[in-house]
């Protein structure tokens, strides 16, 4: 069981991810506000952050940068509805483990999460 946070400006999306990953036994915390998510990382141990790139105030890349400063060992999966080479390169350079394009399939999500967390375990 892992501690996972999900940040997306679309509320339904974070609910869905929580449902899918909770069923896999993970402890999922959902956010639609960037500051709240960053604060959570500051105060709780987090194994994996699933971040949308398009957020309300900041970009997912900026949020990732802040979180990595607080918790360098934290894993991250970036989600985007509009992939660009630039955002992908930046996300990877900031330490993101996966870069997924929405709409992501339930099974694909489960696989990616398992792979990223598994990598941690290995």
């Amino acid at each position: 069981m892992s501690e996972i946070i999900v940040l997306d400006d679309v509320y339904d999306a974070v609910i869905l991810i929580r449902k899918i990953l909770s069923k896999k036994g993970h402890n999922v915390h959902t956010f639609t506000e960037e500051e709240e998510a960053v604060d959570f990382v500051r105060t709780h141990p987090v194994d994996l952050a699933i971040l949308d790139i398009k957020l309300k105030k900041m970009s997912g890349i900026e949020v990732l940068a802040q979180m990595k400063k607080i918790a360098p060992g934290m894993r991250a999966i970036m989600l985007t509805g509009y992939p660009t080479v630039e955002t992908a390169r930046e996300a990877i350079s900031l330490g993101a483990n996966e870069y997924c394009v929405k709409p992501i399939d339930k099974n694909e999500l489960e696989e990616k999460v398992s792979k990223v967390l598994g990598g941690d375990e290995s």
Partner: peptide
């Protein structure tokens, strides 16, 4: 097209995922 795709993708992701569940 990029904007529309992006705006559509998050709700579509929520709807599709929820439907699969």
């Amino acid at each position: 097209a990029g904007t529309v795709a992006h705006e559509l993708n998050s709700p579509l992701f929520a709807a599709l995922g929820t439907a699969q569940l």
